[in-house]
């Protein structure tokens, strides 16, 4: 299996690559269109701001390439947020693959922002992604903006508001938390995702 990790939005890819190493996967960290298009799986990790990341994807001519991918694609953290239509962070249009807009956590609820730390996954669907995952298993989040709950939400989480923790639309998947930093639960979720490819 060939994994393409898109090196376009943010600086810290090391942890994601380490997680792929632990799963014994072959990967390329790349912005090369052909490598991305020909990969069996594509990962879109991201840390940073939506505006900065969309700018980089645009400058590298990758937005259309990503939108047209047919193989499984996994967006992680900011990478998941970019799959949606619009973010109020920097007020930028995103890739527009998944319906919905990113909002900021409300600042009138006495919430410490960002939402940072371990919080539990809530899901009630049968999906191969959840093999061996228990309801209310905790995963590690770091984010200030959130995706709304909609029909494409596979798992949700609550921090003042309910928001999407795992999303799936056609071949596109997204995880708002950092599976690569979420201990055994995160490792299982990643392994389950890569199992979808076969």
């Amino acid at each position: 299996m060939n994994v393409a990790v898109i090196e376009s939005c943010g600086a810290n890819f090391k942890s994601v690559l380490n997680a792929l190493d632990r799963l014994n996967l072959n990967y390329k960290l790349t912005i090369d269109k052909t490598i991305i298009q020909q990969a069996d799986v594509v990962l879109l990790p991201g840390v940073g701001s939506a505006g900065f990341a969309m700018n980089k994807l645009n400058n590298n001519g990758l937005t259309d390439v990503i939108c047209q991918l047919k193989q499984p694609v996994l967006g992680i953290c900011l990478g998941m947020q970019l799959l949606y239509e619009y973010s109020v962070e920097d007020n930028v249009p995103c890739l527009g693959i998944i319906p919905g807009r990113l909002n900021k956590f409300p600042d009138n609820m006495n919430l410490i922002i960002p939402h940072m730390g371990w919080n539990n996954l809530i899901f009630d669907v049968n999906h191969p992604l959840f093999a061996d995952i228990k309801l209310n298993n905790d995963v590690y989040f770091v984010h200030s903006y959130y995706a709304p709950i909609n029909e494409y939400t596979l798992a949700s989480c609550n921090y003042g508001v309910d928001f999407t923790a795992i999303v799936n639309y056609a071949n596109f998947y997204g995880m708002q938390f950092h599976p690569e930093k979420s201990s055994e639960v995160g490792a299982k979720l990643l392994a389950n995702f890569f199992r979808l490819v076969k």
Binding site: K14, S15, N18, A19, D21, R22, Y140, H178, E180, K181, S182, S183, E184, G186, A187
Partner: peptide, 11 residues
Amino acid sequence: ISDIARNINIP
């Protein structure tokens, strides 16, 4: 630091 990052999967 990179040794730690390779060996653990928590922040």
